[in-house]
Structure formats: C-alpha cells, structure tokens
Design a binder for these strands. Structure first.
Lengths: 225, 225
DNA sequence: CTGTATCCGTGTTGATACTG
DNA sequence: CAGTATCAACACGGATACAG
C-alpha cells in the first residue's frame, strides 16, 4: 500500500512532486481551494477523472497531510474533503504555474473552466496598480454556487457564500465570465446570449473586467531543424 | 505520436501540467536552470531516470518550446540542451513548490541533492532582511563544477563560471554545503571530514550560513479515524 | 446518492541490452 | 557518450457491481 515511485531527492520541488506530482492530484487541490467539497462535486469539476482515481488521490493527499476527510454533523451526515491549513498554503503553486503557462504558445483559453479555476485566476492575474484605490463588494453566482469577491488595497479576496449587500451582482457560467474578463467579450453581448446577468453598478462591472490583464505570449521557438 | 492524455481544461495550472506534469519533466528543467547541459550530465543528476524516458521528456519539452537542442560549434561538436527564455521563466515554480514542500511533515533533507537543487534553494530561501546591506562575491566549487554567487541588495545571483576575484571560496559536495547551510553542521567539522574546504573570509562564511532559514514544519494532521 | 472494490484494455514507465 | 529497442511491471481510465 506504499508508493513505489518517488524521486529520491532532497530538493524541495522534488518532494513536492512526490506529494502532488501524480496525475490529477494538483487539480483536486485546486477544486478544494475555496472550501470543503463532496466527492461528487470534485468529480463533476474534474472532467475525465474516474471514481477510482479520485479515491486514490484523496487517500494519498490525506496520508500526506494535505487533505482531511470530515463528516458533517447530522442531519447532513455527508462526508466532505477539506484542505488542511498547510494544504491551503499551496495556492502560490497555482499562481506561479498559471502565470507561466498562460505565456505558453499552446495555451487554449477556450477549453472548459471550473469555478475554482476562474476564481483562482482572478487572484493570480489581478493588476495591483489598476485595482488600487478601488473598494467594492461583488456577488458572483457561478452556475449554482455563490461567491463574494471583495476588492480592497489592490487585492481581491474571494470566499464562498452569499453577500447581504453588494455593489454589483454577476450571475453567469464560469465560461461566460471568463469570456468577459479574458476574452474581451462585452457584457451586453453575453447578456443578450442569456449566459450572463448583471445587477447593480454596471460601470463597476466594466472596470472589474479590466483588472486582470493576461501576460504576453512567449515567442515560439524556431522549429527543430 | 501525440499526447493522449491531457487535461481538457482552460485553467492555467492545468495547462502547465500538460506541459511539465509528466514524471521527471520538471526535474529536467531544474537541472537546466543554470545553463546548457549534455544528455549525460542530466542523467547523472537525475538519479533513477532511464535513458529512454529522458529522451522522451527532452523531445516533449522541445515540442512545447521549453527546451532547445543546440550543437556546439566545432571542435566541441557536442549536443546540449538549453532552456528557452520562457523556459528560464519557470524558476518561480521551483520556488513556490520548494517553499511549500519544505513545510511537509514527510520532507527528508538527508536524501541526495544535485548542485542545481542546492543553488536554486539558495535563491528560494534567502532571507532578504538578513542579507540586506551585505555585498560579497563567493566562488563555489561543487563537485567539479564552478559557480559564482553574488550577494547584493538582499538578493543572491548565481551563475556558472569561475570567479576571478572572490571574498570567499568554498569547495564542497552539494550534500556537505547543504549540511552546513540547512543542517547546522559547523564548517570546521565538515573540513575535518574532508568534504568541504574554505578559503578567504571565514566570518563571511559563517554569516552566509545564516541567510537561508527553513520555514517551520506544518502540523501533522490527526491520524485518520 | 456517496463512495468503494474489481476487472480489463491501453498507455506509460523503467531496467537491460544494444547500436552508431 | 548519446541515444534506441525491447520487454515486463505498473498506472490510468472506463465500466460495472456493490455497500451504506
């Protein structure tokens, strides 16, 4: 029942790969970054993973101290998986990986995207200079999940939950909101298509859409001789 | 001849894993972070990799634009692998992975370590506050390779090559220098063991050894019920 | 509904041997 | 020294069956 293949290497990065280097492991953590999740939710947001692999990854991450498995108190009594405090500290890994990979010549932003991915990308890509001086609360409804984003001090904080008072409310699919923020799609177009709805301060929405510039693509190397 | 298993996911981190998520890929990049390397050098510093896997990874990384293969001009005429400019930009990935993993309850710093790993760890772990105001040039001979480390403005720059003038010269194995910096081993002990030699400013050596504090370990989670 | 266990076809990995 | 060829062991993904 032990892992057979580690890297026998004291390098910190190599040890990180011993923990999260197996296929799907890092994406499981990504889906847990905004709070506990049930098995079925994880599966739904990780297209292509099979149930047995998800079970194995959760077991491995639990053994390594990244994930804990909790049983909610009755009457819910469902089991959920949650990151440990150290597990939550993995967020910078997604930010550096994401920032680097968006400069890849082969990155395709039109593929499906999960709520967690999109929200993590906001925290990765926010331009502190452009967001400075902007304070606002934005309620996001992505699919059937509610999140609250608070802009302050050039940074963005995001948590699950419903906002009592918000300057702006956006209801959309993750793909539609991603198209607005990263694809340059106009909110009006997306509203006309019925994939996005705004309520509240529409000028704030337009400014919000400018806060997350994508880095330039790296040059493609010369083709191999 | 294409990859069959990607993640169909627009998430930047997922795309990064499409590029560098295969076993060994990231460690190959690590070994290239300080300049071009030959096939055999890579193999020697990646204990456990087999030749065919190294070939496949280099091919894949070349396809993705991370690595280029160059033929040195005669009379050397040997082939070397080198990171592209974008490939060199992967360094923050090692830093975040390394910083996170050193807090793992299961990290074992006594395993073998390559020159590249140790030097990357210096750039990851340097404490800017402790290094501020310190300017120095240190020549490092690790095994049979020469590097120059320059401390300035609280940061450390490291490059391959021999230093004409240096305040301090350290000759050691990577393991021995790691023991001095991270394991608290005294330089005198290591010199007596014949695994390390100092020349020049010994007070600088002692101060150098304090510049790279390891983060605290994360709490081990409760054992599963 | 939430997982877990098992089987199976396929692709990936790794050790050894081998060729230029 | 730099890689290729072969083959055995393993990991993955899909399907299905099963337990609480």
């Amino acid at each position: 029942m032990e892992r057979k293949r580690w890297y026998e290497d004291a390098c910190g990065a190599a040890h990180a790969l011993d923990i999260v280097g197996e296929r799907w492991a890092l994406l499981v953590i990504r889906e847990l970054m905004f709070g506990p999740r049930r098995f079925g939710e994880l599966r739904a947001n990780l297209p292509g993973i099979s149930a047995n692999i998800l079970t194995q990854r959760l077991e491995g991450l639990e053994r390594e101290g990244v994930v804990v498995r909790r049983k909610l108190p009755p009457p819910a009594s469902v089991q959920v998986y949650e990151l440990t405090p150290w597990g939550y500290e993995a967020e910078p890994i997604f930010q550096t990986l994401g920032r680097w990979a968006t400069r890849s010549p082969t990155h395709d932003p039109t593929l499906p995207i999960s709520n967690a991915s999109l929200l993590l990308s906001f925290r990765t890509m926010i331009d502190a200079a452009k967001a400075r001086g902007l304070g606002a609360t934005i309620a996001l409804r992505l699919g059937n999940e509610d999140y609250v984003a608070r802009l302050a001090d050039g940074a963005i904080a995001i948590a699950r939950g419903e906002a009592e008072a918000a300057d702006l409310r956006i209801a959309a699919t993750a793909a539609a909101l991603g198209a607005a923020i990263y694809g340059g799609a106009a909110f009006e177009t997306l509203e006309a298509q019925g994939v996005l709805a705004l309520e509240g301060d529409r000028a704030l929405a337009r400014r919000f859409a400018t806060l997350f510039p994508l880095p330039e693509k790296a040059d493609a190397p010369p083709p191999p001789a």
